[in-house]
Design a protein around this nucleic acid. Structure first.
Lengths: 396, 396
DNA sequence: CGTACTTTCTCCACTCAGTGGACAAAGAAG
DNA sequence: CTTCTTTGTCCACTGAGTGGAGAAAGTACG
């Protein structure tokens, strides 16, 4: 199939594409109800979209008491690629234009192996998805990386945990390889967009999305749009001081949130506890190198191990204190907790909630849900697909 | 004079009004260069504005090598009233449509006397300004109050330091009394708008404006627009925990920033120090009730008193720690420090800068100016005038 | 099956915002 | 006085968008 290259020619067309993406197939009449245009004008714009091939007419809908309507839908052959590069693994998914996931692959990989090795892996996974018949090619790709990004150019800048990527032209390189438009963003922002598109944040204009994985970051959504800050580092809350004179952090300071709670910190603390004989449950899970992972801690906690539960609770308290400050400052309508440690579940959530509800003012917390993300590892790739679709569905 | 009631009829007219407000008188040709409209269309819109009386043609400008242009300017008889209600004083100013202050009055007053008493004072001050010939009436008024506001309705909600104002219909009441449109906002947001319009933040899209007065608040500007949060309490940073298990705060928690540093806290700490005989300089300034104010501390510091300087430095460190967290989170392009304690000057600023530059990541602080506001007490009233002018200069 | 009613979609004349070129007005430079 | 520049006005034209008429394609009911 020849890949689509058209873009909407004006704001009306862009709006229609978005409606079709988020609301699925629709008749002209239904679209007219949502778009505040006369039927005549609407018909003209729909016809133009049909000409570009971005949308197709596909059969008649059931009658609603009168003439049956023609179903208008986004071209079902369109394919987006969503890529989520985490600190320790890579996710790649294919979606259709409605951002429904058609296939999803995951592969463990250390991002510090550098852009060349990771790109090779991503392209191999994309090829595998293509080979399985899910796509003949891609009309666009979104990609998230675990660090700050100069958004317009799609280039990571000074990323602490992936130094080899500094200045690497991710957008251009991937666009070359795939032969389609590419947008790049911070992985946390993509998670926020994913939860906004298909998860718990569908109806909220202003919210925070805290991702606790190897590190800690926070996606900020203002008026439905991701806020990236002046240099693209907004939401970098891992190095906010959580404990005065606390543990030393890789950044050079002491007491950073990330040094006290994150996937890495939790694994480290649990390993120490196990080696000191504080918990037989944890000790039983030590691997051949005498180390534990955050997943082990979650398992031990689920089995009722007091030490594991304490570690989670303490981490949740630290995190909750920081979030409480952010809630006072930002007054969001929702706080989403996601990332690898979501497996720690209710214990973590309860600790965070306790701190936030106790420390922030009632006006800010009175009607503030604090919930776990509902998409899990699909949030990132869905957000990536959403990112490129927002780009392609805006006027050229 | 008959007050203006017209509003711009479309977005073009709104844009033209804004250009004339921020850029002063202009010829049609110069406006055309800034507005991306054909000369014909521009002439039509200018003519319509002339008809409404919002703008006037006033004389010929000097030639620039050809035919002389007609000066177009905002009607010089338009008058806005800017009101800034602080915790301990009221500021009222008159501006023209270009938001230039024509007259400014200040009156000490405790906001806890309640809306009725404060309104009486505000109206008396407005009448005085009118009587002095600065205005025959007002075309609009902006008013700031020291607490969260339900912005669309212009009603304070659950304001901690002015409980008597909860639910009082400020917008409607003042509009009735003055007979003109009124907009209400948090005083901190108005300060941010003031510095954005005429102060240090003129060219920055995303910035924070920290106001340290009786309490502490923070104005948040995202993409040139004030961000108010879901319930209007965004920027309420006074109750972020700055010191674990610190001083008890009026809000019921311990260690809130406001309990450790603010005009009130500084006065309290200085009074204690003076009474304990730690500083002769401070003791010499005790009033008849044996108390000090923040102004006394500033004076003592200026005189080189070590105790006063220490208090300021410690407060600046606390504040700087909290701001450092906000900088990591928000990645602003500028941080403005303002409010009553601006008199503490460089000592305070240096302490704040030290903490922020030390604790936040280089990417966020690399090019981040942290400066004092340049408008002083005029920031609030200017921001208030700007608020109502933004409202009136937007399409009806 | 025929008639009345509903919903969907198309067609078309009309309005109005906006463009761009021609030209007049007014001044500067020589 | 001529030439050139800048400013502002006029006017015919384009194209976006509207709203009503009516065709197309159904359902409901006698």
């Amino acid at each position: 199939m020849r890949r689509m290259t058209a873009r909407p020619g004006n704001a009306h067309q862009a709006r229609l594409l978005t409606l079709l993406r988020d609301g699925g197939p629709n008749s002209r009449a239904q679209l007219g109800d949502q778009v505040d245009l006369s039927r005549s004008k609407l018909a003209v714009e729909v016809d133009r979209l049909l000409e570009t091939g971005l949308v197709v007419a596909d059969g008649l809908a059931a009658s609603r008491g009168g003439r049956r309507s023609h179903n208008i839908r986004l071209n079902p052959e369109l394919r987006f690629l969503g890529v989520d590069i985490g600190a320790t693994s890579v996710d790649v998914a294919v979606t259709n234009a409605e951002l429904e996931t058609l296939g999803h692959l995951n592969h463990p990989m250390d991002v510090r192996e550098g852009p060349v090795a990771v790109f090779e892996q991503v392209l191999a996974m994309a090829a595998k998805l293509r080979a399985s018949g899910l796509a003949e090619g891609f009309d666009g790709a979104g990609i998230g990386v675990p660090g700050p990004v100069r958004f317009p150019e799609g280039i990571p800048v000074a990323p602490p945990i992936m130094p080899g990527w500094d200045g690497f032209p991710v957008r251009e390189a991937l666009s070359q390889e795939l032969g389609c438009p590419v947008m790049v963003d911070n992985d946390v922002n993509l998670m926020a967009m994913g939860e906004q598109h298909a998860g718990v944040a569908r109806t909220v204009a202003d919210f925070l999305c805290v991702k606790i994985g190897t590190g800690i970051g926070c996606g900020i959504v203002v008026g439905g749009e991701v806020y990236r800050g002046t240099t693209g580092s907004a939401g970098d809350i891992g190095h906010i001081q959580a404990v005065p004179d606390g543990r030393p952090c890789a950044c050079g300071n002491r007491g950073c949130l990330e040094a006290h709670f994150s996937g890495a910190a939790l694994a480290r603390d649990a390993t120490e506890a196990a080696q000191q004989g504080l918990s037989a449950e944890l000790a039983s899970r030590l691997d051949t190198n005498g180390a534990l992972t955050a997943v082990d801690v979650a398992a031990a906690a689920a089995a009722g191990d007091a030490t594991a539960l304490d570690l989670i609770r303490e981490g949740g308290n630290r995190t909750g204190q920081v979030i409480a400050g952010l809630v006072s400052f930002f007054n969001p309508g929702l706080v989403v907790i996601g990332g690898g440690v979501t497996g720690l579940g209710h214990t973590l959530l309860a600790a965070i909630r306790t701190q936030v509800y106790r420390q922030s003012l009632p006006l800010a917390t009175g009607n503030l849900p604090i919930v776990l993300g509902e998409l899990g590892s699909a949030a990132g790739v869905t957000g990536a697909a959403r990112l490129i679709s927002d780009h392609l569905f805006s006027p050229a």
